[in-house]
Amino acid sequence: MGENRPALEVIDVLKEFHIKRPPLWKRLLGMASSQNGHKTIRAVDHVSFRVEPGEIFGVLGPNGSGKSTLIRLVATLLIPDSGTIRVFGHDVQREEMAVKRMINRVSVEASFFKKLSPMENLLYGARLYGLSGAEARRKSEAILTRLGVRKSSFNEPMEEMSRGMQQKVAIARAFLTRPILLLLDEPTTGLDPRSKREVHRIILELRDEHGATILLTTHDMYEADALCDRIAILDEGRIVAQDTPAGLKKTVGNGEREPTLEDVFMELTGKRLRDENEGEE
């Protein structure tokens, strides 16, 4: 792994989804929800950015702006239509297995086998990454305890846990494998302030003590401001701004008060909403 290699390079990446027209029989019987023809949605529109090793890089954007698609592209779960993505110099398509070994992901939905306990789910996840049962059990207990999951819940079915607790187990699953590139897709959604703070501390620890690089999407502007070294703002699949939090704030400053990241977000992604509303009027 070369020291001067970027942790993540996203170069001119394009991803579109095609929605087919409903079949004729469905349209004739009125069973189709839409009569429209073939539709193409451009989820990621020629996006480029670079994340340096050890950096926490935030991606902000409104719902449907392409943040999760971008994370899935890096996570090898989607294949880009064009462009290149490299993780520590490894192409996500050509060297998929090498990339998979270096990454892990926490998504907004805590996806688990709901009948299984946190420990059973974590053991499964850890073994997929080559950890032994004993090692996985020991590490799982340590991380779950640290995240404030009660010991009595370790062996209870996940479906009996709250949404916030399930999300903590999801975070534990990703941390367990010590990824050098961690993809966090709205990881703290649904967590209480104390748990959020603990997750923030662990993210920083993972970066500071283990040198992990982090790609973070969030709707929490405070979280982005507190954690991210640099931020890209995504709107309709395109990057509309990219800078440090301080740099972004400077772009919208009007002198009256110090702007927040929320002001930046509203300024850069809210314009279209205003335009549309004005158009409707």
Partner: peptide
């Protein structure tokens, strides 16, 4: 059905 498919297919498993 469980929603775990992405996690399994994302893991470095042949």
């Amino acid at each position: 059905w469980e929603g775990t498919i992405e996690y399994t297919l994302m893991a470095p498993v042949r």
